[in-house]
Amino acid sequence: MEKLNVTAAHMVAAARARIPEIGTAEAIEMLKDPDVVFVDIRDVRERQKLGYIPGAVHAPRGMIEFWVDPESPYHKPVFAQEGKQYVFHCASGWRSALTVATLLDMGFDAAHLRDGFTDWVKKDGPVQKDD
């Protein structure tokens, strides 16, 4: 395989340089705010195995652009709520950084949990698990 022109790590670094990032402690406090919508873009198997932030909307990364776009046949109303702040997260902050960079390019205002769900758990953020 030939060397890539741009690595995934470079893409994440470039995204992080231009998107709003929220630290874990701040995000845990934001959980109390009804105007904050946490969006979990991890795979459904990650959520089932490790749990999730209580109340977080699950939106698979592969569908985000379509679910957010009001002109898409796949649009989800949860992404059209006025006055809401959207905070996207994945496990470590890489996928969510790329996602939020794309959403900002689309004109959708969003931020991401800088260190992801792994740090959320490490810092004793509440976690919900389904039976």
Results as ranks from 00 to 15, higher is better:
E2G: 14
E2M: 15
K3G: 12
K3D: 13
V6D: 05
A8T: 11
M11Q: 08
A13S: 08
A15D: 06
R18S: 13
R18N: 12
I19Q: 02
T24S: 09
E26C: 08
E26F: 04
E29N: 14
L31A: 11
L31G: 10
K32A: 12
K32I: 00
D33K: 04
D33T: 02
D35M: 09
D35W: 02
V36I: 13
V36N: 12
F38H: 11
V39N: 01
D40W: 05
D40G: 09
R42P: 02
V44F: 13
V44L: 15
R45F: 12
R45W: 12
R45A: 15
R47V: 11
K49R: 11
L50C: 08
G55M: 04
G55Q: 05
H58A: 14
H58M: 14
R61W: 00
G62R: 05
E65K: 05
F66H: 08
P70R: 06
S72W: 00
P73Q: 05
Y74I: 07
P77F: 04
F79M: 06
E82R: 12
G83I: 03
G83N: 12
Y86L: 00
Y86S: 01
F88E: 02
A91S: 14
W94C: 14
S96H: 06
T99A: 11
V100L: 02
A101I: 00
L103Q: 04
L104H: 05
D105P: 00
M106W: 07
M106T: 07
M106G: 08
F108Q: 06
F108C: 06
D109N: 14
A110E: 09
A110G: 10
A110D: 10
A111D: 01
A111P: 01
R114S: 10
F117W: 11
F117I: 09
T118E: 08
W120Q: 10
K122E: 13
K122L: 10
P126C: 06
V127K: 01
K129W: 00
D130V: 04
D130H: 13
D131N: 14
D131P: 15
